[in-house]
Amino acid sequence: MSDSLVSVLTALADDELILGHRHSEWTGFAPHIEEDVAFSSIAQDEIGHAAAYYSIIASVTGGNVDRLAFGREPSEYRNAILCERDNDDWAYSLARHWLYDHADAIRLEGLEGTAHDQLRALVNKMRREERYHLIHADAWMKRVAHGPIEGRTKLIDAITNAYDDATALFEPFELEEDAIKQGWVVVPSDELRRRFVDRIAGILDELGIPMHFHKRADTSAEFVASSSGDLIASDGQNGQVEPAHDGFGGRRGRRSPEFGALWDDMTSMYRAHPGASW
């Protein structure tokens, strides 16, 4: 009965850990010193949330938090592939940060009614920190979207690159049906993905950003005109269609080529000193 709980928590924790690690790669390199501090702080928050999820897993299974974070083989991670993509440039990292934090807000809102007491308490605590992440991401998006053409163009390309991967944050968890039956998860991933797609399309429309999803969108998706006349993706007729693209599969342990170098780097200290306590 706890298998499905561990499955869900592992996916959530791995998302936060892997994205937190990618964010942290900007430390010392962000566009300016203030943002360097702000983005590093967001990275720390995400890794802190991962630690909190892992400690629930550890309390259920009797495992060890450090081992869960750093002692697994690449194929044992269950993060969405979006989280492990290389940073590329600031536009991509910003687009990913923005997409991820809106997805996370939707996800946490959905988890508020979970039957697991410890998880429910954690969700409420995390939502307070995630509020700042959203304000930060939205503030950046607004400025770059309304700024000079070069930044705007880079941002549009970055959203195009990250969008499909972001919808895969709502690829169903392993054992999701059981997790719903047990009450660990309240809202099915397919429904959350529909909410996410709606929310993102709405904000992009407000920002006046055209969507060029057709580059990598799945064939089942159709395009509808937004109020600004731009084309936006709709998630199929009933939103149940799971788009098949290379950003999917993360929840089943499929890893992209980018993951290897990240894993090497992230776990090197842990592997160099087996059994050390930190």
């Binding site: 300016h32 010193i33 203030e34 943002e35 501090v37 702000a38 702080s41 700042y132 930060h136 503030a139």
Partner: peptide, 20 residues
């Protein structure tokens, strides 16, 4: 002090830089 494009951004940056 922070360098920022506008007051809202300055508040966000100041929060992270000086209220940690």
């Amino acid at each position: 002090a922070v360098i920022a494009s506008d007051p809202e951004m300055a508040l966000l940056m100041a929060k992270e830089c000086f209220f940690r």
